[in-house]
């Protein structure tokens, strides 16, 4: 069981940010800089705070003048690797109609990158990991890689964590070749990677995963559970009768 508490309020969130996220100051456009700085800290440190990033998008929603496409793209990149949780779509949800202010000197990169980010997100949601890597490594995604994900520390590892999350629940044993294609690693590099996770590799290259509640399916018969509240009418009648 994974608690949502770490998502609602990550440990890395400072008190100042917590006050912004949970208080009425979140609506004050003057605070957008603080939240943007916090986002860039997340980009540099592998931390992640979805609610704080949504607060930035909220300010952009209410104050279109604040809109900064680079910030939006970075927020989406962070949200991408929280799959299978719905963060990416929650962010997109707050991007209202496209901003109408177009600066011709500096064209908005979002309209060209958004379809790629969306497709990458759909591939992760569908656990089509080899297809994800193929698109991510393709020429289409070149500007995404060169201008954005290269700055995002640990982006590829974050994608691999999405993979590991999916594999750990569904498999008891998996072949090195299959896992390598999911992780976008060479087959020879897989043993080293999985050993860090505490997984073991046998001589034939088959990887065994540790038991967890998700990869130990058991057949059960769910028995009926009678609540006292269901019986109050009968018991109180018995008293008055």
């Amino acid at each position: 069981m994974v608690a949502a508490a770490g998502w609602v309020q990550p440990e890395t969130r400072t008190e100042q940010i917590e006050n912004l996220v949970s208080g009425v100051d979140r609506y004050n456009p003057n605070n957008v800089g603080i939240l943007e700085d916090y986002l860039y800290r997340q980009i540099r440190t592998e931390e992640y705070d979805c609610l704080a990033n949504l607060a930035i998008l909220k300010l952009y929603q209410f104050n279109p003048d604040l809109y900064n496409p680079d910030v939006v793209i970075n927020i989406l990149i962070k949200a991408l690797t929280s799959s299978p949780f719905p963060d990416f779509n929650l962010c997109i949800s707050l991007l209202d109609q496209r901003p109408t202010i177009q600066n011709t000197d500096e064209p908005d990169p979002l309209p060209t990158l958004l379809p790629i980010l969306t497709t990458l997100h759909n591939l992760l949601q569908q656990c089509r990991f080899p297809a994800f890597w193929a698109l991510y490594r393709s020429e289409n995604a070149e500007s995404l890689r060169d201008n954005y994900t290269v700055e995002c520390v640990g982006f590829e590892d974050a994608v691999r964590r999405v993979v590991v999350h999916a594999v750990v629940g569904a498999f008891r044993r998996i072949s090195s070749e299959r896992l390598a294609s999911y992780l976008h690693l060479d087959v020879e590099d897989v043993p080293e990677y999985v050993q860090k996770l505490g997984w073991t590799v046998d001589a034939g290259g088959v990887i065994s995963l540790p038991s967890n509640p998700d990869n130990q399916p058991v057949s059960t018969v769910v028995q009926e559970n009678v609540q006292l509240s269901q019986l109050t009418k009968i018991i109180s009648h018995a008293q008055t009768a």
């Binding site: 508490a5 998502w7 059960t220």
Partner: peptide, 28 residues
């Protein structure tokens, strides 16, 4: 917003290399 990740289906399975093992929960 609080919550815990929980199984929601009566049908569960695991893949053991190339074998799929299935377990079904039934309601009494």
């Amino acid at each position: 917003l609080d919550g815990q990740t929980m199984p929601t289906s009566d049908l569960d399975f695991v893949i053991d290399e190339n074998m799929v093992h299935i377990a079904e929960s039934t309601v009494g």
